[in-house]
């Protein structure tokens, strides 16, 4: 079954990167600069981290990580791009930052809660490396609250920690349930609807 599905998965990954490249280009056309490409570069770094993190050199986990990021993060690509450039868009006041950070936290909380909820039933244990990423994510989140001037950078690092964790747990859940394609189609389906929205709304197609 897995062998048969591999070609389908292999389409997802380049497609995802192409979409990001298009978004980066659209953003460049609209706002100038290389920020869109920088966001692509950063996402590739996270991709490599996902390879290393899972110790499996598993492409699936890597692009699931990206899929989570794209599907759940707020105001992409603006947030990504700002995180790469250290925040060049007009600053928002501290209370707004707090509210938006809390709202970002909500999305991570949802993703992790779902994966842990599945994990309790499937008896997936959380190892020490997972806990390190969880704590690191929490530290970056708190740093964002305490030092609003570093908001975009800390949010980027916070996202990297949590989405790596999400991708790893997601892969484990899929392995255990054996319904990989169903879970992935939903994740990627959702992701592409979101990307469609971005193309229409943010890039003004």
């Amino acid at each position: 079954m897995k062998k048969k599905l591999e070609p389908i998965y292999m389409i997802f990954f380049p497609l995802l990167l192409s979409v990001m490249l298009v978004l980066g280009y659209c953003y460049k056309l609209r706002h100038g600069g290389l920020s869109g490409y920088l966001s692509l570069g950063c996402s590739l770094v996270v991709c490599v981290l996902a390879f290393l993190f899972t110790k499996k050199w598993n492409a699936l986990t890597a692009y699931r990580c990206l899929a989570f990021w794209f599907a759940l993060s707020c105001q992409i690509p603006a947030t990504w791009i700002n995180s790469c450039l250290g925040g060049t868009l007009p600053r928002i006041d501290v209370i707004s930052s707090l509210v938006s950070e809390v709202y970002i936290l909500l999305r991570f909380a949802i993703a992790l809660a779902l994966l842990y909820l599945a994990g309790t039933k499937l008896e997936i244990s959380v190892n020490s490396r997972d806990k390190v990423f969880l704590i690191l994510g929490g530290v970056f989140f708190l740093a964002g609250l305490l030092f609003p001037s570093l908001l975009y950078v800390t949010m980027f690092l916070f996202g990297a920690c949590f989405f790596l964790l999400c991708a790893k747990l997601w892969t484990t859940v899929i392995d255990k349930t054996g319904y990989g394609i169903v879970w992935d189609i939903l994740l990627f389906g959702f992701l592409y609807i979101r990307v469609l929205m971005l193309l229409i709304i943010y890039c003004e197609f």
């Binding site: 949802i110 599945a118 349930t177 319904y179």
Partner: peptide, 11 residues
């Protein structure tokens, strides 16, 4: 969607 997946496939 996530809860539905967990409910159907994990539980």
């Amino acid at each position: 969607i996530g809860l539905t997946l967990v409910y159907l496939f994990a539980y």
